[in-house]
Structure formats: structure tokens, C-alpha cells
Nucleic acid binder design. Structure first.
Lengths: 202, 202
DNA sequence: ATTCAAATGTGAGCAGTGTACACTTTTTGA
DNA sequence: TCAAAAAGTGTACACTGCTCACATTTGAAT
């Protein structure tokens, strides 16, 4: 079931991934600004020009790394959501997974929301995450667990959830990680509070 | 009351501000990455090396621009808060001012949370905003308008407010400005909902 | 008014960057 | 086996941030 790829194609993908890995490691180590194509090519025993057989430009390379980070985030969220039961717990699990990712890979997280002029793949990836969240919210509404009003409707709830989670995540990466009250229990309290704001009384 | 400055000092400050303005305009126009010291010096009829009499490095220049953006944000918030009455309305006004700023100056806002390795002034400025927010929250608590619990205490509320507002603001700058449900009324609804979560029943 | 030092601005140049292009080498498929 | 396609190289260009010895201007004390 390995999707029948020709060996040449697999080799190509491998070197492509090697480049991505080396560049990613360099970003994690020295920041986005510290990424140098020459350093990457040196480390891989390539000539600088060789990288341009795989990526049209530096921005394209970084975009590809960004895309892989988004994939990792999305699967991390998906796994945590899948192992939770009920709309409330699933939404909470998704939010915590998001925040944990930011905490665990702050540089990656920062990179992901570091939009370049040519922000194409980025928008797509974010839409994926957005749709997943919207799916959770919609499910909760349809099952009657979440309630809406005219002004606080489905879109508003989705925005609210995303903003809260993203805000906490960003603050964890930029501000000192141990800001007063940024403990895991505090974060869970906040998220539960938000969710409770649109959960039907039992 | 003009703080008695020598003319030489004023001239120095003026050229310094000229450099800051030119660089800032260039960032707004072409993004942070598009900022070139040579282009700035060209525009001001200076030699490239001249800028180094005013700023030790490019990072220092950008940091100074960042600091001025923070100042603008802080005063914008302060004004709006000052023209509101009561803890609830003041907190709401501050949040809306924050979000409006991000909406109005997305590139500036993005720049402000674009931390470089040497993030010194940044931390200070953010602490200022944080303290202002904390001040509002604390005032509301002491006047009995806001209520706390053991887990949802002062720090938690502060974090919650900041994260929500910052999250909405960031999403407004990165994602398309007209995301479904990101209207002004929706945003106000969300903020009121959050504030209601720690407001004493009347 | 003279003088001397500090401040300000300059020109040349270094090391490093992303990138283009003609070139060679390797791999592939008929 | 052989030509075409793919992969990799070396050189070079324009650009970057930045340094430093030097020229110019300014400020103030003599």
C-alpha cells in the first residue's frame, strides 16, 4: 500500500526531505533569520545551486517547512481530539493540543504565523485547522450540547474558540513561559470557562 | 515646559526620528524583510555608514521602531479606556482599542510580535501593557464588580483577557480580515461574553 | 576670535547573502 | 546502446549589514 512510487521519485523525495530537515534544524537552532541556504548546502555536501533543483526560492523552502509544521500540528490535534469523548471534552482536548504544540515547539509555532508576502500554502493549511474546529463546534451544536443565540452564533463561537486558544498559545511562546498564572491548570480553567459559555445547562 | 534641550540635541533627535520614519515607512510598504539600510540612507541623502552613528545595528533600529509602535498602541488604549466609565466598559474599551489597532496597522502589529534574538525593549513594553490590563482587572475586583474563584483568580482573568484580545487581533491580521463572523459586533459580543464570565451578578 | 576636541558624515571595502546560468555528470527509459 | 532528462557544479552578479580610517562640521572653552 506504499502508493507505488518509482525509485527515482523516492530518491528525489528523500533528498528533498533531507534539505527540509537540515533547514528546519537550522531554523530551530538559529531562528528563521539565521537560515542560510549556503550553510544548508554545505551541511549536505551540496553546492548552493543544487537546492534550486528542489525549491524555486528560499521562500518556497521555508513555506514547505511551514506546511510540514502545520501537518504536525493538525495530526497532533486530531489524535488528542479522537481520544476524547463528547463535544465538550473534544473541543477542550483540541485546544490543549494546540497550546501544547506551541509550548513544545515555540520556534516552529512562531514560524507558522510568520507570513511572507507569498502566503499561499499557509492560508490553505490554516483553513484546514479552521474547518476542523468548525466541525467540532457544529457537531456540538447539532447534538444539542452547544447552544447558540442570534449574535453568538456558530461563526462567533468558532472565532471565539480559535482566538482564545491561539492567544494563549502565542503568549506562551513570546512572553516568558512562566507568566503568572500561565500554568496548565489555569489554562484548562480558562478553556472550560469559554466552553461553558455556550454549553447548554444540563 | 519643553524640557529644555540644547539645539544640538534636538537636531540629533530630529535626524534620528527621520531615520526611524523612513525605515518605518519602508517596512509598512515592503514588509520587515524588505527593509534595507542602504535604501533608507539613499532616501535621506545619507551615506549608509551614517545610520550607524544613530543606531548600533539594524536590529537596534527595528527595535526602536517596534518601541514606538508599542507607545502608539499604549496611548491608543489609554485614551479609549479613559473615555469609558466603569470596570466593565473600560475593560471592553481597552480590548477593542487593541483590536482596532491591529486592524488599522496590521504590519506594525505584526512587527511588534516579531521577536528578535535580542528582545529587551520588547519585554519591557509588553510588561507595560500587561500591567495596565492587570490594573484594570484588579480595580474591578477591588470594587466588587469582578469576582474571583480559587482557580479563576486575578492572574487567570488577566491572562484570559489578554489571550482573547490578542488572539482576535492576530487572527485579524493574518487571516483574511473578513473571516466569517469577524465583524465588529461579533467581536464585541465575544469580549462581553468573556467579561460577563467574571462579573458579579447585579 | 582661536583652538581643539567631540560629534557627524563619507568612501572604500569586506564577508556574506539569494539567485541565475552555462556547464558537466549521472540517471533513466526506449 | 544511446539520446534525453534529471541532478549537481562553478562562477558570477547584485545586494546586504557592517567596519574603519578619513574628512568635515560643530560646540565650547580659552
Amino acid at each position: 500500500m506504499t502508493h507505488e512510487t518509482k525509485p527515482s521519485e523516492r530518491r528525489r523525495n528523500k533528498t528533498r526531505q533531507d534539505i527540509l530537515d537540515a533547514a528546519h534544524a537550522m531554523i530551530v537552532e538559529r531562528g528563521v533569520e539565521g537560515l542560510s541556504l549556503r550553510a544548508v548546502s554545505d551541511q549536505l555536501d551540496y553546492s548552493p545551486a543544487a537546492l534550486y533543483r528542489h525549491f524555486g526560492s528560499k521562500d518556497e523552502l521555508v513555506d514547505a517547512i511551514r506546511a510540514q509544521c502545520f501537518e504536525r500540528l493538525n495530526t497532533a490535534i486530531f489524535q488528542r481530539v479522537a481520544s476524547a469523548n463528547g463535544a465538550v471534552e473534544q473541543l477542550l482536548a483540541g485546544g490543549l493540543a494546540y497550546i501544547d504544540f506551541a509550548r513544545q515547539y515555540p520556534i516552529d509555532f512562531h514560524l507558522m504565523f510568520h507570513f511572507a508576502p507569498s502566503a499561499s500554502t499557509q492560508a490553505e493549511n490554516r483553513q484546514t485547522a479552521m474547518r476542523a474546529l468548525l466541525f467540532l463546534v457544529r457537531g456540538g451544536i447539532e447534538s444539542g450540547v452547544f447552544v447558540t443565540t442570534e449574535t453568538y452564533n456558530e461563526d462567533a463561537i468558532t472565532l471565539h474558540c480559535w482566538a482564545t486558544v491561539h492567544g494563549i498559545a502565542i503568549l506562551q511562546t513570546t512572553v516568558a513561559r512562566d507568566e503568572p498564572g500561565a500554568t496548565v491548570t489555569t489554562i484548562e480553567t480558562i478553556l472550560r470557562k469559554v466552553i461553558a459559555g455556550f454549553t447548554a445547562a444540563s
